[in-house]
């Protein structure tokens, strides 16, 4: 049907629809696709006063410089360590809490718990870090309480050795509650008759959990794991930027803050653009790869 009608006529008939889409399309082209062209500076020795066109072309030199920069590798190392800690400590947390919340029989308590645990998601990182400092900083509630019983707590907020644990703890505090929403929806989707049939057959509470509830969560868990993998090089930019200076770049630099401090602040535009480009490509490849893998294992992926 559509092929018989000329594209021109179809567009003219639907010009209102096209006009509605156009501003948004321009937005995405200008702020998402135009910057991609800006990555040309990763192959130049970009000098702001010369501009994109006149800055000298240097091929892959920036990538070589980046790979021989020890602070870049420190940032990669910190990023991957934090990502791994997030995967182990943060990722399972919403699943556990969702299982507990889902099993609540009282709607009132359930609502109350949900209202409370969703809230931190909406609080800014600036505030979250302030709250943690209030609690764990040198004169914070925790330090004072422990000093009262004769324990000297190190200033957790400024301890390079604890930094990675701290940022993961902050993430757990902020996002665990909100993260339960998607698992709660999946739990509601499990057919209640399965439980009934299992109970009639004499399956214990544990067996119902193991054979019905947990399998019901596998799909969504794999999906979120894929999405998480794509984020493995982006470990909380705003969050870490706020606290990096408390512990110094050695312990606190991650890839995104490396790009900010060496590029925007330090003026190494080209080298950091190269780092950003690599990071973006690796992230996309990770998502696509994880998606492939999930499908090979018989799970529906994100890309259909």
């Amino acid at each position: 049907m559509a092929s018989e009608q000329s594209l021109h006529a179809e567009w003219r008939r639907n010009w209102v629809v096209l006009a509605l889409v156009l501003p948004g399309l321009l937005y995405f082209l200008i702020f998402y696709y135009l910057p991609l062209l800006g990555y040309v500076i990763a192959f130049e020795n970009y000098l702001p006063f010369l501009g994109f066109i006149d800055s000298p072309w240097v091929g892959l030199d920036n990538f070589r410089d980046m790979l021989s920069d020890s602070s870049f590798w420190a940032a990669v190392n910190n990023t991957l360590t934090i990502a791994l800690l997030q995967l182990i400590l943060y990722f399972p947390a919403p699943i556990a809490i969702a299982l507990v919340v889902d099993s609540l029989t009282s709607t009132g308590i359930r609502r109350l718990v949900q209202s409370v645990i969703y809230l931190p998601h909406f609080i800014s990182w600036v505030i979250i870090v302030s709250l943690f400092q209030q609690f764990l900083g040198g004169t914070g509630v925790m330090a004072l309480a422990l000093r009262g019983v004769g324990w000297a707590l190190p200033n957790v907020m400024a301890d390079p050795g604890l930094f990675k644990w701290l940022v993961v703890a902050e993430l757990v505090w902020k996002e665990t509650g909100w993260g339960t929403i998607i698992y709660l929806a999946a739990l509601l989707g499990i057919d209640a008759t399965l439980y009934e049939a299992a109970a009639v057959d004499g399956a214990s509470w544990w067996r119902r959990l193991w054979h019905i509830t947990l399998p019901g969560l596998v799909g969504i868990t794999v999906l979120l794991l894929i999405l998480r993998l794509g984020q493995i090089l982006s470990v909380g930019f705003e969050q870490i930027l706020l606290q990096r200076d408390f512990v110094g770049p050695e312990a606190g630099e991650v890839l995104d803050t490396y790009v900010y401090y060496h590029g925007v602040v330090g003026g190494q535009w080209s080298v950091t653009a190269a780092a950003g480009l690599i990071k973006g490509i690796v992230g996309a490849v990770l998502v696509l790869g994880a998606d492939r893998l999930a499908r090979r294992l018989g799970q529906p992926g994100i890309l259909a």
Binding site: Y32, I41, G280
Partner: peptide, 12 residues
Amino acid sequence: LFVPGIIPSYLV
């Protein structure tokens, strides 16, 4: 899938 980074966004 592919988010432009800080540097090119700043330049735009």
